[in-house]
Structure formats: structure tokens, C-alpha cells
Design a protein around this nucleic acid. Sequence first.
DNA 1: ATGGTCGTTGGACGA
Length: 257
Amino acid sequence: MMIATWNVNSLKVRLPHVLDWLADKAPDLLALQETKIQDENFPAAELAAAGWQAVYSGQKTYNGVAILSRPGAEPRDVVVDLPGFDDHQRRVLAATYGDLRLVNLYVPNGSEVGSDKYAYKLQWLEHLRRWLAEELAAHPLLAVVGDFNVAPEDRDVHDPEAWAGSVLVSPAERAAFREILALGLHDAFRLFEQEGGHYSWWDYRAAAFRRNRGLRIDHILVSDALRARCRACAIDTAPRGWERPSDHAPVYAVFED
DNA sequence: ATGGTCGTTGGACGA
């Protein structure tokens, strides 16, 4: 079984990339973020024609999440948005496939440390942690995936000195990330790779991808029981080099059945 | 070089 996550930065623009990647990798589940598309405009027919069904929660211009799956693996117990957190931004989508619970997140970016958006991000992460505790208690096989907008450690940052203290790496954001891991979740990528230099996002500006000046901010977190089945986790940097790419690369994990 | 480039829009704003 393969599950994957990809911030596509507009599904309308990136649909050809998504279809190409699905055809090549054939994951069982693909979580998408920043679809930037309202539900009535979601390309469900185009995806269905390629053999994929979708659940989605979108809005105009910003945010938006979706999960693609194969027909036959019916999504159950779909949750939209963080329970108990009054928020119109479409950033959360969860569904159960067989005995696997998948939580798809587009964590707020935070803009700048000290800004209102930064405070909102930290508050959002606190509510996320509380909800994930409940999800973990209810679902032994839990995967929490998406764009976390947090680079957990300095080895996840191309230039830690230049980035020190700024949004995506600040101590408070990293502490919030660690508290989520402390619930009993594991960063699947770090089960297999300890070196730095592996990133999932590169700024569009200043030829950042060509120079591999990136951050690892897209993650697949797995519960204890799911970790026991995890056989691989990797970042597919190839699509970041395609024509008119997303600024994020897909991350995927493989599990023993 | 204190910016750079995208996407959504139809002038900025968010990332």
C-alpha cells in the first residue's frame, strides 16, 4: 500500500501533473493541499475518467484539500475542518479507507513570526493536537499527512543560520510539531533517512530548486501500529523539475499489507 | 541586489 501527499498550489493548473504522477506511481491514496478550487468546480469527472475517486473540501482562491483513492476503497467517516475550531478556511479533511484512517492537513503558513497569522497558526496547531489525540485513540492505524509548514529540525533546512527564528522553523512551531509527535506519531521519512539535504518545498524565486535551497515541510506521520508496517518513505523531487511545477514535491510512504 | 516567482485575480495579497 502506498499513500502520498502533495501540495499542488492550484489543482486546476496542476491537474496534468497530478494525473501523470498517479499514472506513474499508482498510489492507493493521494492527499492534496492548496487545491484552490471550490467544490462545484472540482475536476471530479476528469479524475474519475482516469480511475480515481475523490473527497474534497475547497474554497475560492485559497487553501483547499482533497483525497484521491481507487473506486472500491470507499471513504468512510469523512471529517471536514478541525472539530471544535470555528474556522472557515478549508485546511482539514479526514477519511477512513478499510482499516486505515487518513488525516490530510494544510497547516497555516504563519506569514511572519509575531504576526496575527503566526498566532493563528500556533492556535490552530494546538487545536490540531487535541483532535489528533482523539483520532489516535479511535484509530490504531492512523496516518497524518500534508503540508505542515514546519521544518522540524535544522537538518530539514538548506541554510539553518539564514532561516533561524523565522516562520516555518521558529522554536514555537517546532515545539508544536514535537508535541504532535509526542502523541504517538512518527515522522515516516526519518524512519529511513537521517541525512540533511532532503527537501519537499523550494521557493519559486532565485532558482531555489536548481540550487536545492529548500525546506522539508511536507510530512507523513504514522501511528505506532502503522510504523510497524512502514517499509519506505521518500520525496519524489522529479515533478518539481517539470514545466510549470508546484513549489512542493510529492512525499510518499509504502506499507506492508 | 533588502528583490527575486507563482496563482488568483483583474490590484494586491498570500505563499
